[in-house]
């Protein structure tokens, strides 16, 4: 792997249970797209082209979670065909919004959503890719941050570790000089327990962090929840705060289960 040495890794993009938003972040790299197209060989990327070069692949970017028996098999084949496997986004790294099923009775949602639920064959849970195969790099977010996506691809091309910090969103707020919405306005904000990467987008416009990047590297949400309670956040709302795109990420899961209303 010598940068500039003419090595153009082949890249495949795979979709599992997901909305495509993360893989479309690649195409959102408008300013860098030509350079990127020159630096890698796109071997499989159905949002870009129907052409399929076939494996093995140097780098696989995997979007989505595992929700069907077929996908549980398919991810194994993707892993076998990939030298480096990078999961991108909340679905692939934590199970995504669809992991809400993990906290409901299996099959309860299908009749509400589908006219013929008998055609639906899905697993009882939505699980992250790392629960099924070895993952080399995880990129969090709903969706991923395109600058972080570019950083990971660039790092892989250069053969260096990607710079993807695991600290809190608060550090990004402070670096950009944003006034803390929790301290200065009493807005419930998940920033202190959420992984950085978005550049602290929401607090910069006066909104609390939604936690779309999932738990920070050493997140301990319970003291923050206690603060929210003192701010007057209701128990159902506390649960909703942690029960979104990363509801099945361990630190968030244990926190919203703590506030599960008794049956």
């Amino acid at each position: 792997m010598i940068p500039g040495g003419g090595w153009r890794p082949s890249v495949a993009v795979w979709k599992f249970a997901s909305c495509d938003g993360c893989q479309l972040s690649l195409l959102d790299l408008e300013d860098e797209l030509l350079a990127l197209a020159g630096a890698v060989r796109v071997a499989h990327f159905t949002e870009l082209s129907r052409a399929d070069e076939g494996g093995p692949y140097d780098v696989s970017l995997v979007e989505g979670s595992i929700t069907t028996p077929e996908d549980a098999d398919r991810i194994g084949r993707v892993r076998e065909a990939s030298r480096v496997l990078v999961t991108i986004g909340a679905c692939a790294t934590a199970g995504g919004i669809q992991a809400l099923r993990n906290f409901a009775v299996a099959g309860a949602y299908a009749p509400v959503v589908y006219a013929h639920p008998e055609y639906i064959a899905s697993l009882a849970t939505s699980t992250p890719i790392a629960a099924h195969v070895t993952v080399d790099v995880e990129l969090h977010g709903c969706p991923v941050d395109r600058r972080q996506l570019l950083e990971v691809i660039t790092a892989l091309i250069a053969g260096r570790p990607p710079v993807v910090p695991g600290h809190s969103v608060c550090q990004e707020c402070k670096a950009r000089g944003t006034v803390c919405v929790l301290v200065a306005a009493g807005v419930p904000c998940l920033g202190p327990v959420t992984r950085a990467g978005c550049g602290a987008l929401c607090p910069a416009v006066g909104r609390g962090c939604y936690g779309c990047f999932g738990p920070a590297e050493s997140a301990r949400p319970s003291p923050l929840t206690n603060r929210f309670i003192r701010l007057g956040v209701s128990r159902p709302d506390l649960q909703r705060l942690y029960r979104t795109f990363n509801a099945a990420a361990p630190a968030f899961r244990s926190e919203h289960l703590r506030h599960d209303p008794p049956d």
Partner: peptide, 22 residues
């Protein structure tokens, strides 16, 4: 919370991390 806010707002906390990128 180990969020680091105290260190960021402190007028004397001087720690930096070095990041090399390509």
């Amino acid at each position: 919370l180990a969020c680091g806010n105290c260190t960021m707002v402190c007028p004397t906390c001087f720690c930096t991390s070095v990041e090399d990128t390509t």
